[in-house]
Amino acid sequence: MSTDNIIYPSTSDDSFKRPNHGYDYTKGAKSHTTIESSSINYPTKIYNDSLVANRKEVSLSSMAFLFQQMIIHFHKDSKTVHEFEEKLLTNGFQIGSKLLELLNFRSSINPTNSSRTSTFLSSNTNLPTPKMQSQTSYDTTSGNSSIPSNNAVISKTTTQNTISNQEAASTSHYSSIANTINKMKRRDLKILDILQFIHGTLWSYLFNHVSDDLVKSSERNNEYMIIDNNPVLTQFINNNIKNSCNYFMCGIINGFLNNAAFICKVTPHRMPTENSDERIVYLIKFDSQVLERENLRFSS
């Protein structure tokens, strides 16, 4: 029985796989402080910063130079090409996992609410009438996280009615964006859905345009491809390790997918066509358990 491959549910918390790390009554409570988790006893401003996309930009040169230095540093430290690629993959992975959370959150912010978010990011304008916020529908399907926050909004708005407009506006400056979310974007459970999200939202976030193509392999069931005709980050690198440098982007995709519980491996392949000499295909190979899960859930 223990050799059966269990199909794990699609949760991102995989602590159930390691039952030994719970409370061990023979040893008592474990002290688990790392250096990183020591308490920060000065006020960091990052918790006050807005998470709404602020569209800040830097020049492509700065990014290209930084990327190059990263390549050089990793290349120096690695003894083999494989090790170098692994390093790039791991680093991209960290970025991808963060982007999953961030982009899902941002896509939940209803774009028609943008006037509201701008009102409460500037502290001088009046709040819209609280009644509008309480009317946000509860018809939405269960399981979304906005219901508790809407409850909080309602209780807050009744008290705010008694505060003067000015004060209300200034307190609203620090209220969270989460309060404006009517319906939290649901987690993508289908392979195609999350790949569409990568092809559209992730690529536009990174490069201001959607990726050039999203293709399902005709030969193998678990392979999909995302195509980029002009990879932006590696365009200035022109030598034989160029393809290895694409592992960074693969890492981002990999981190994104793995943390969304779609275990996969991503590799870059250079496939030039007449139009684009630098065309790169990111080949995504999903683990068999992902496909099994998809079949079990969605095949009718």
Binding site: E57, S59, S62, M63, L66, M70, H73, K87, I95, Y205
Partner: peptide
């Protein structure tokens, strides 16, 4: 100047520092 999302820049730098 060709521009790119500044958050990608921030995140890349962050992984460089943490790798170091």
């Amino acid at each position: 100047v060709e521009k790119i999302n500044s958050e990608l820049f921030t995140l890349t730098y962050g992984t460089i520092v943490s790798q170091l």
